[in-house]
Structures are given as structure tokens and as C-alpha cells.
Design a protein around this nucleic acid. Structure first.
Lengths: 197, 197
DNA sequence: TCGAAGTGTGAAACTCAGTGTCAAGTTAGC
DNA sequence: GCTAACTTGACACTGAGTTTCACACTTCGA
């Protein structure tokens, strides 16, 4: 069983995947997600339809490529928080992981958030992927509470609400054309609960 | 321009729609959502594929038929709450509207929740529909706050979190095979925030 | 009573996403 | 160099959803 070491092939695959993603994103921005077929994407990238679908199982994934991966990293950050910190504070800090991407290339992220927001299929798929973060995050909270096997209703609610805060903050950031400060928006979102006022 | 009065025709349409929905639901339960084609549904209901698709734009809608309608009623309930009540309490009471359906026919609702939960396409579509409740609910909160035009981040967060509470409560109710009390679960969910402990 | 307009249904053709299979070609490792 | 593993492209296929057209049937005014 060959271990999961990163060899030349994997690097090439990742590079191709990234390039296909870029080509697709450009095309989607220009013509709109639903007006671009997989054949168009393949042609624009110079590969066959088969190959394109091998890199991205669906059209949506060409945009939402690495989105699910971030979930595991957020859960990890959650586990790394001090054990005596309350859930809400821990969640707020764990979500700092999501911020840098928006600071590195705000223009690109704005385009992406707008594209996703204006395309029902993309919005639904992104939501689904973000919800897939939850089990690992809930498990992290349950571990902190000392009962990793049976997470409570409260853990699910807090994790879900924290992810909503991120979504709402990003949406408002996008509505402000990136002018508002994303960290401030996220803090404002987290402060919207009864005990936080 | 004929007003939107409910005439004989509309009643007949609604009855056919309900019957088609019942047939589809039975078939989905028996064979699994993705193993049933629209042709199967049409054949089982004794209509053509065209007709079936005219009643339900998509296969998912045959299950999630009246789901979006409830959103407007929840928003209405929200507007009807006393003006001096805090958002969180108002939301909790507005969501009481969602409960009776589960009490009236628990077995059917259990089947439905399980079917949706175990079918990614259905889960995604339901989530999308529930999210469509939000604008009206947020607007209701903004009205209460005296600024109906510019809802705040806090309003979006509270509405989203409240809907998460409902979802989490229903999911746990389903996991308990309907043995746990849904109202108690919903209260527990709403109590999961910092200030509520 | 006739006919015109509106409405519900079915048939068929079409586009496109996604799956599966197979026969090349290419690369890595020995 | 040779072989085994992997990558690619071509092709056929299923099924969702859209559109168009023709054929009923009902309604309503002349």
C-alpha cells in the first residue's frame, strides 16, 4: 500500500486542477454559470470533457474546489483552543482561519462571493459543503466538554450559529463592495446574541 | 385581470397536486429518492411525464411541496409579536408555528425527515427553501427595530440562528425516533447561547 | 346554438449533467 | 528496455428539465 506521500504526479495533478479551476472561474464570470456548459469549459482549457469531469466531479466544484478542506482545519483550530475557554469564544477564534483568504486577494474573493450569491446552484452547493464542516466541529466541542461520544443539542446549535455568523459577515462585506472590515463584521455578528449585548 | 380568487379550477388543481405528492412520497419511501425516475412517478400516478412536471417543477418539489409557504406565515407571526419583546423571544414564539405539523402525524413526519436527511438532493433543496424564509423574517425584525429599510447584521444572525435551532431540534427529534419532546428540544436549542445559560 | 378564447393534457424532440466503459498513450520503477 | 500503473479521450447511456405543438374540453359572449 503506497503511503500518501506527495509525489511528482500529485503535484502535476494539483497544478492542472488549479489551472482548470481558473479557466472555469473566468468563463463563469464572463458568461454566467448556467450559460457555460462543461463542453465549453473543457474546450477553453484544452482538455476533453471526460478529463474535466475527472478533476471536478461537478460543474459547481470547479468554483468551490477547496472549500470543504477548510472545515477540517477549522475543527483542528477548535481543538487547539484552551480547554477552559467557553464554546462561543473558541468558535470565534477558530473562525479567524477563514479570514486571511479574503485579505489576500479581496477583488477575486468579491467576484467569487458575488458569483456564488447570484447562482442558486452554487449557493446551495456551498452551503452543503459548509454544513459538512459541522460534524467535526461539533465533535471538537463535545471533546472539550468531556463527552466526545454524545454531543449535545447545544453544541450543534452553537456550531451552526457560528457558521451563520461567518456567512452573514461575508455577505455584508460583499454587499459593501469590500469596504467594510470583515473582522469587525464577524465580531458584530458574534455579538448579536442575548448574552453578548 | 382576474383577481386571485379561489375558484373551482384552483381547488381541483390543488387536489391533484396533493395526490401526486402522496403517490411520489410513497414511491420514494419504498424505493429511495434517486431510484425513482419522473417517468415512474408519472406512471404510478396515471398521468404523463409532462403533467407531473407541470405540477412540480422538480422531483424534489414533489416531497417539499408546501415548505416555502410556511416561511411567510412565520414572518407574519413574528410581526404579530409585542413590540417590546426582544428578538430572541419573539423568534422562539414565532417558530411555534412549525411545531403542530409534527404533532398531527408524527409517523409521517418522521418518515419525511428521515427521507430528506438521507437524500442529499432533498436536504440541499430543503435548506435552500428554509433559507428563503429569512428575508421576510429579517424584515420583520427590522420593522420592530424601527428601521425597516436597513436590517442589521444582528437581525440576519438571529434569524439564521433561530432557524438552525429548529433544524437541530427536528434532527434530534428524528434521531430519537420521535421519543423526545420537540418543544423541549427547541427550548434547549434556544438556550444554547451565552446569555441564556 | 355557434364559435372563439382560454386552459389542461400528452407526445416528442432537445439540451445538458453526470456515469461507466474501453482503448489508446504516457510515465515511473525495475 | 520492459512492464505495470496511471492518464486521457472517445463514446454510449441514463435521467432531469425545457420547449414546442397538437388535441381535447370548458366557458362565455354573440
Amino acid at each position: 500500500m503506497p503511503a500518501e506521500r506527495t509525489n511528482t504526479r500529485d503535484i502535476a495533478r494539483a497544478a492542472v486542477r488549479a489551472e482548470l479551476g481558473r479557466v472555469a472561474f473566468r468563463l463563469f464570470l464572463r458568461n454566467g454559470f448556467e450559460n457555460v456548459t462543461i463542453d465549453d469549459l473543457a474546450a477553453a482549457a484544452g482538455v476533453s470533457r471526460s478529463t474535466f469531469l475527472r478533476y471536478f466531479g461537478t460543474k459547481e466544484d470547479a468554483v468551490l474546489g477547496g472549500f470543504e478542506a477548510k472545515g477540517e482545519r477549522v475543527a483542528e483550530a477548535l481543538r487547539a483552543r484552551p480547554a477552559d475557554e467557553d464554546d462561543w469564544t473558541a468558535l470565534r477564534h477558530a473562525l479567524d482561519l477563514a479570514i486571511p483568504a479574503y485579505h489576500e486577494d479581496p477583488a477575486a474573493m468579491l467576484s467569487m462571493v458575488r458569483l456564488i450569491g447570484s447562482t442558486p446552484a452554487l449557493a446551495a452547493r456551498q452551503l452543503e459543503k459548509q454544513r459538512a464542516w459541522r460534524p467535526a466541529m461539533v465533535h471538537a466541542l463535545a471533546e472539550r466538554a468531556g463527552s466526545p461520544e454524545h454531543p449535545a443539542v447545544a453544541h450543534w446549535v452553537r456550531v451552526s450559529a457560528a457558521l451563520d455568523c461567518l456567512t452573514v459577515a461575508v455577505d455584508h462585506w460583499s454587499d459593501s463592495d469590500g469596504r467594510l472590515d470583515l473582522v469587525a463584521l464577524l465580531d458584530e455578528a458574534f455579538a448579536a446574541f442575548p448574552g453578548s449585548r
